[in-house]
Design a protein around this nucleic acid. Structure first.
Lengths: 206, 206
DNA sequence: AGCATTCTAAAATGCGTATTCTAATTGACA
DNA sequence: TGTCAATTAGAATACGCATTTTAGAATGCT
């Protein structure tokens, strides 16, 4: 190293997350990112090869943190705890939560996909998350994983909790207690995995 | 009128929905819309004052159709039927469903909001939908509508069913039977409205 | 100190897009 | 059949943005 850098990779990543969380993907122009950091536009290109590289790095960082919080609980066969873990994670990572949970990756990357290394890292993360879901479903049921069971698990543990939180993430303020109650209730009333005789069993009743 | 129009307002609206349903909001450039219809770019501006007017008109059309399908069932106090009605609506309006249910309005309009008349029409539709939810919740409970109850109803009848359908809408093919089963089960296991004594009652058990 | 290297800095470029402009065409009506 | 306003038609414009370029500044190493 020959000159101390004033702006780190993470500076740009954080600025990008903040801008997208605030005003959607289109708000994160290169100029806006630079302005937020207090750097000239061109400096970003010393850290990232393109805009989609910045967005991709930000996405991987947020998604990686999220998966790290949930996957272990899934592999331990505790889907209810995994679903509820989204709440503290969102509270402790407010910016990341708004960035990750209120945006579709397809909307972020629709123009130009991130460079290969970032795509590969994302794929690893997705496989890790998917594997955790499969392990969880296999543990709850009779060992085999059917499409329906996987869809049920992903809905109960991921999509439904996010749908419950979304209005509050959009609005801003704190996540209300009844949102937590709603997530917990989902796991009492709805079956996740088939038992050997073809009936369904709920998780909460285990 | 002195010359028969070759391209109608609806032609452009349909083309816009198709493009967004296929490739996201960014795919619906004015040139792409024109190409899809077979018209020159400039012709769009004889029907719509701007791109956001086209997107706004398309959104209102899809949302209006959706609200028309669900609101009456809500006002009749049949939340379960309303939730399940999303399925046939999506099957009969595949393009509209992908356009409406896979896109956030915030992503469509983040750059420039649609002109005032369209915004007002959208607000009317939203109020109509919200009013239907409130009527439904008031009918199920003791007449008053608390925030939590409204949130529960909107989740059970709108957000959760859409979260269940989303993966299949994205993938394309037909909506599987088990998706319908999952929506129905939600309404058996989860309470929607508080009764006078503070306990919750489910809709399916009514 | 002098050099090589990595960074900041800011202006310049180029491209894709929405929007506007100008001209040509159409067809109901007098 | 001639008129004329609405429409088609397609090129021209303007602008915002990602990206590149060029110049200058800072730091560790010799």
């Amino acid at each position: 190293m020959v000159r101390t850098a004033r702006f780190s990779e993470d500076d740009f990543i954080d600025a990008t997350m903040a801008l997208v969380a605030e005003g959607g993907p289109a708000a994160a122009t290169m100029q806006a990112i630079a302005r937020q950091v207090g750097a000239p536009t061109g400096s970003i290109y010393h850290r990232f090869e393109s805009r989609s590289a910045v967005l991709g790095a930000a996405w991987n960082a947020a998604y990686g943190s999220f998966v790290k919080a949930l996957a272990p609980l899934l592999r331990e066969g505790r889907p209810r705890e995994a679903a509820l873990a989204i709440l503290p994670w969102s509270r402790e990572n407010e910016r990341r939560a708004r960035f990750l949970l209120l945006n579709e990756p397809i909307a972020l990357f629709e123009d130009t996909p991130p460079p290969a290394p970032l795509r590969e890292e994302l794929e690893r993360l997705e496989n890790e998350f998917d594997g955790a879901f499969r392990a969880c479903v296999a543990g709850c049921g009779d060992g085999t994983v059917r499409d329906e069971e996987l869809a049920r698990a992903k809905f109960l543990i991921f999509d439904a909790p996010i749908a419950i939180l979304r209005p509050h993430l959009v609005k801003g303020g704190p996540l209300p207690l009844f949102a937590e109650r709603m997530i917990a209730e989902l796991h009492v009333g709805m079956p996740i995995a088939a038992t050997r005789d073809g009936s369904m069993r709920t998780v909460g009743a285990a």
